[in-house]
């Protein structure tokens, strides 16, 4: 019998106004794995992630994390369960220094103990952040801000991190660099969900992939076994 996955999303539907952005999406994330959710702009990926993180309330469906139902929990409730979201566009606190940003990540009560060591670990992972720790995060480049956002998520001692389009608008070398760190984070035992528009890169990094189209998962399988042609068709909705 298969072990219970770390995260299980069952038939989640979510609306933006009257528009059904997520239409019954289901997927699973096994413990300690990297899973990618791939889809074009407007496929509903971000809304789905927002639902998991508690930022957006789904209209139906269930979200189970570590076997517990976390559907409709507030964002602080979700963080307390050790599930973190790195939101699209990094969303750093631009008027705070890099270090204060990171420390904000350790705001949840469970994360306050040992935040010093975790800060040290984040600095080891991203030495650049240590150099710039006194700078306002608003003064950083896009890639550096993503690093702040990742470090900030790590500070809450999560067991699962959702990365929402982390590579959006970044230079290829920077993206490569960030992906290396994500793999390093995963090796430390943190599970990862990569939300991407970039098929090749996310397939290469993840063990398992889902293709999302118009609010649903239309194709899934172990990343290595997924046929490129089929992925392409699913991605664009070609039958």
């Amino acid at each position: 019998m298969c072990a219970e996955p770390l995260l299980r999303v069952e038939g989640v539907c979510a609306k933006y106004g009257d528009f059904l952005a997520v239409a019954g999406a289901s997927f699973e994330v096994p413990a300690q794995s990297i899973v990618s959710v791939i889809g074009a702009n407007g496929a509903g990926k971000s809304t789905l992630m927002d639902c998991i993180a508690g930022v957006h309330k789904p209209v139906s469906g269930r979200i189970l994390f570590k076997g517990e139902d976390i559907t409709g929990l507030s964002p602080n409730g979700v963080v307390a369960k050790r599930l973190a979201l790195v939101p699209q566009g990094s969303r750093c606190f631009t008027r705070m220094t890099v270090e204060h940003n990171l420390l904000m990540g350790a705001y949840p009560k469970h994360a306050r103990a040992g935040r010093g060591e975790r800060l040290e670990k984040v600095y080891e992972l991203f030495p650049m952040l240590r150099e710039k720790r006194k700078d306002l995060s608003g003064s950083l480049s896009g890639g550096q801000r993503q690093m702040v956002a990742i470090g900030r998520a790590l500070m809450s001692a999560p067991e699962l991190i959702l990365f929402d389009e982390i590579s959006l608008g970044l230079a290829p070398t920077v993206i490569k660099d960030i992906y290396q760190r994500i793999r390093a984070i995963n090796r430390e035992g943190v599970s990862v969900v990569l939300v991407e528009q970039d098929v090749a890169r996310s397939k290469k990094t993840s063990a398992y992939s889902y293709i999302m189209l118009r609010g649903e998962m239309v194709l899934s399988g172990p990343s290595k076994e997924l046929d490129d042609e089929k992925v392409k068709n699913a991605y664009f909705g070609v039958r």
């Binding site: 964002p75 602080n76 963080v79 973190a84 606190f93 705070m96 904000m104 705001y107 949840p108 809450s156």
Partner: peptide, 23 residues
């Protein structure tokens, strides 16, 4: 203070602040 920093974070970006577990 934690509360004070939380208030500053909310003022900066309230969605991101909520992801930090701030109400």
């Amino acid at each position: 203070t934690y509360t004070g920093q939380a208030i500053r974070a909310v003022s900066d970006d309230n969605m991101a602040a909520s992801l930090m577990g701030i109400s």
